[in-house]
């Protein structure tokens, strides 16, 4: 960060002022944290007994089960959303108007509906209301399909941006040597689009991972719901161990997400060094306009 552009190299007075600000700011922050910590301590949330619950095999197994459920949903939703994204992206760039309209409509609709609304609608049986058949959707599948539908729309737009970033000469050259439409897309455009968009795609996968926590609301026992169950079913000295469980589960989430965004950043840095192909995008969450441009 070239922060130094915004201010001069500090002279003696500025150094003194910065020191004072450092101390005051640092004290304020430490004080705030200490105040919260003290309130928590005062309520007995830092008692040894509160934290002792994580020594029970049952609770550890619960947490592991929750983690496994979260990862399972994430893996299925991620795979499904990427496959659907390729299809939607192809549809959106199709030469046939009806296909293009259908894909665009689908993308614009589900990108602008809150994910929670989609998941909830799937859970309470919107499929029954549309199709004449009786389908009973379990919370897990409602979560997976909801996540897949929403994220595929975002990823499809990311892929489309990637394909549009490939220089036109490449497509023209491919057609000129006699490649078919499918061949051009599959062997010229897609590989480069995926490669350049990889950091953004992975950043959106981080969002998918975070959004698996919406399973909490439809009562699917993933990590967050597990945390709530543990905290509300365990009593230590007549108090519920909300703070310890939130700290443990929150750390798990943050570590998972940081690992995934670390991967995105690594790929971005690695791609920067490469001399060939189009440059990779920045590893950041794609903008969700969610309303027609």
């Amino acid at each position: 960060m070239s922060g130094s552009v915004l201010y001069d190299a500090p002279g003696p007075r500025a150094r003194a002022r910065n020191l004072v600000l450092s101390v005051v700011g640092g004290l304020l922050i430490v004080g705030l944290v200490a105040l919260v910590a003290y309130r928590l301590y005062d309520k007995g949330q830092f008692d040894g007994a509160m934290w002792d619950i994580f020594n029970y095999a049952g609770i550890r197994e619960n947490i592991l089960d929750g983690l496994a459920a979260t990862l399972k949903v994430f893996a299925m939703a991620a795979a499904l959303s990427l496959v659907m994204a390729v299809v939607l992206c192809m549809g959106r760039l199709s030469d046939h108007k009806p296909v293009r309209w259908l894909a665009t409509g689908f993308i614009e609709l589900f990108r602008s509906v809150p994910l929670l609304i989609t998941i909830f609608a799937l859970w309470v049986g919107i499929v029954d209301a549309i199709l004449p058949v009786e389908v009973n959707i379990e919370p897990m599948w409602a979560l997976v399909f909801g996540l897949a539908i929403y994220n595929s729309c975002v990823q499809a737009e990311v892929l489309r941006a990637g394909i549009n970033a490939v220089p036109t000469g490449q497509r023209e050259a491919a057609y000129a040597i006699g490649m078919r439409k499918t061949q051009v897309t599959a062997s010229i455009l897609m590989p480069q689009a995926v490669r350049s968009m990889m950091p953004t795609i992975i950043s959106q996968l981080v969002v998918t991972l975070k959004d698996t926590s919406l399973g909490y609301i439809i009562l699917y026992p993933e990590l967050l719901q597990t945390a709530r169950l543990i905290a509300s079913n365990t009593q230590v000295n007549g108090d519920y161990p909300y703070v310890p469980t939130v700290i443990v589960i929150g750390t798990l989430y943050i570590v998972l997400c940081l690992a995934l965004s670390g991967l995105a950043n690594w790929i971005e840095r690695r791609g920067r060094r490469a001399k060939t192909g189009i440059a990779p995008t920045e590893a950041k969450v794609p903008e969700q306009t969610g309303a027609l441009p």
């Binding site: 922060g3 600000l21 640092g26 922050i29 698996t212 919406l214 989430y253 997400c257 940081l258």
Partner: peptide, 26 residues
């Protein structure tokens, strides 16, 4: 995050990193 005061810069970084990697539901 762009200020010349290190503790504030650190606070800004920690704030952004923690909140961006925590699910909103949590």
């Amino acid at each position: 995050r762009v200020s010349p005061v290190p503790p504030l810069r650190l606070f800004g970084t920690v704030w952004v990193t923690l909140l961006r990697n925590t699910p909103l539901t949590l």
